[in-house]
Design a protein around this nucleic acid. Structure first.
Lengths: 340, 340
DNA sequence: TTGAAAGCGCTAACAT
DNA sequence: ATGTTAGCGCTTTCAA
């Protein structure tokens, strides 16, 4: 039982195999692969032929070990399903296109301990750079992590060496949304809040209050209900609000997913949007334009945030690309708001 | 001008450093890290202390090089933003939890050439296993790729060594949806198709025709319009259908995103759902339950598909976990369909 | 139990 | 222009 020698070809073809096949040295093979130094035409041909014949695929791990770079960017997202985060990731992917960097994605599920653990995993895998999409890590933890590799963090402002942040004034966004409602004649404006431990959520609330204060209105606590940034939180909050008997002509939901949940309850309970009540969201998720009716919201340029983050990272890694400018937050008026 | 340069001083602490610090050999350090062999208590303490003091993080790359395993699973998705795919990925993530495997995600953007290139990238990174979420790769290409590592492919059936597939009969799903409409008394049922080169889309259409044929109806070509599986395709298709003047009392959209686009047009053009026309989607995306009104659809257990794929992969990699069973496709009747 | 030493597959001096 | 060789940081025989 010795013959049958055609055992599937050795699982791993190395540069050495290629070198032998082509009758050259390993360094020549390496040089051809990396195009670093000039190599005579005939050897190049021989090597390329050998590579093809052997189906050689360089082991990127070994290369990384040698070069100390992995050509990998780690992304810490919170929720792999959230349209908010995936939009940003899509931008990162786009921004990295053609740079040779690949993405390794982990999610922290909004839990500081889990986030820290995932980051450590990424660091152990020697990612060359890190993109952290918001989250609950403390500034000092992030600064600490930045000692291993450059970090770009979105949705929050951090000043630390080796860290860049890309963020907006959500207070301003909250102000924009509320201001729009006020301009339309609304005075009784309910607010469905986001998670209290989420800085952006809190800022949006502050913007809401500023807009109200500007026209001499205090924010009415009975008009503020708690949500969680997910559809279901909007459902609960809306039911609570309706059940409380509070009077209002407009609702500002802390994000689009919340608005979606609220809108469903409204519809189910016979409250028409925008005829009976106006509704504004925040984020402008891709699907928000397709709701019935299309949602008025504050647009966050999420895709651009991703692209921008990628370019920041590339720059920190010494591969600067064309510089981008980040569009501002802006109000997108669609059909869920009307004058009263 | 040298100052601003934030070169990350990559403090690379190695096992050798730890060994020296603790006064033992590198092999002892390695043994302690991996817990492979018994080591005397005092040395263990000394090493653990040294690891802590030096903040040593083992280089997973070097380990991989030695062990020939990367503890990484590559996932080829088509669109990092699609709620359909992210739901599956979320399931994969869940199924891999605690297994030590990390996910590296790339997307092929529905382009066979790009898909193949991404897979080659993944293979060069020596992923231990691959999950391919549908796509345009040919069966032979996939079989070919499977020579490098085990593959699980979703949404299609492939019989090849080292490949497992998880799929449903979309023909059956299309049948279920159409049958539901027929049972409700509908006879003029429009169909908004998916991409013609997408096997599932085609199968759903076949199911639609079977249900129709079963009650002696032929599918009316003027009631079938082309979509693209995205919201916008639904918008175009619905407008086209309405403009054509064709008569119908129900619509079966090839997926939920299509249904969402169609539903927006319907609403905009004053056609009430379900009063004037019934609407059925396919997939049961997380947000479909929150539409107004909540969408009747064929539920694909996407999250479970992901979990199941992960367990298949783990099994092929020799880390069997508890076996799961995959739920079937099922009709979820909500509020966009009614009897006529 | 512990240490010495041989690689894993690759790149980059250093020679020639 | 090309080959020889010394590692990158780790695990794992093989001895002691």
């Amino acid at each position: 039982m010795v013959s049958g020698k055609e055992m599937a070809e050795r699982q791993t073809v190395t540069v050495l195999d290629v070198a032998r096949e082509a009758g050259v040295s390993v360094s020549t093979v390496s040089r051809i692969i990396n195009g670093t130094v000039k190599v005579s035409e005939d050897k190049r041909l021989a090597v390329e032929e050998a590579i093809r014949r052997l189906e050689f695929k360089p082991n990127l791990f070994a290369r990384s070990l040698k070069k100390g770079t992995t050509m990998t960017i780690g992304v810490l997202t919170q929720d792999i399903e959230s349209p908010f985060f995936t939009r940003v990731m899509s931008g990162i992917e786009d921004g990295l296109l053609g740079s040779g960097y690949a993405l390794i994605i982990v999610s922290g599920h909004w839990d500081a301990a889990e986030e820290a653990e995932r980051i450590r995993l990424l660091i152990a895998r020697r990612v060359d750079g890190l993109a952290i999409l918001t989250g609950h890590l403390s500034d000092t933890q992030i600064a600490e992590f930045a000692r291993s590799q450059p970090i770009v963090v979105t949705g929050r402002r951090i000043d630390a060496p080796n860290v860049r942040s890309v963020f907006f004034s959500h207070e301003e966004g909250g102000y924009l949304a509320t201001r729009h409602l006020i301009t339309l004649g609304h005075r009784k404006i309910a607010f469905i809040a986001g998670p209290p431990d989420h800085a952006d959520a809190v800022s949006r609330f502050e913007g809401y209050r500023r807009a109200l204060a500007e026209v001499g209105l205090a924010s009415d606590p009975s008009l503020v209900v708690q949500g969680d940034f997910y559809e279901n939180g909007g459902v609960f909050a809306m039911n609570r609000l309706l059940d409380s008997g509070a009077q209002f002509s407009a609702i500002f939901a802390a994000n689009d997913q919340t608005a979606l949940g609220a809108r469903m309850v409204l519809s189910r309970r016979g409250v028409r949007v925008p005829d009976d009540v106006s509704l504004v969201g925040f984020d402008d998720l891709p699907t928000s334009a397709y709701l019935t009716p299309p949602l008025t919201t504050v647009r966050q340029p999420l895709f651009e945030v991703g692209q921008f983050s990628a370019s920041l990272l590339l720059e920190m890694l010494g591969n600067p690309r064309k510089t981008l400018t980040l569009p501002p937050l802006e109000l997108v008026v669609r059909e869920t708001t009307r004058r009263i």
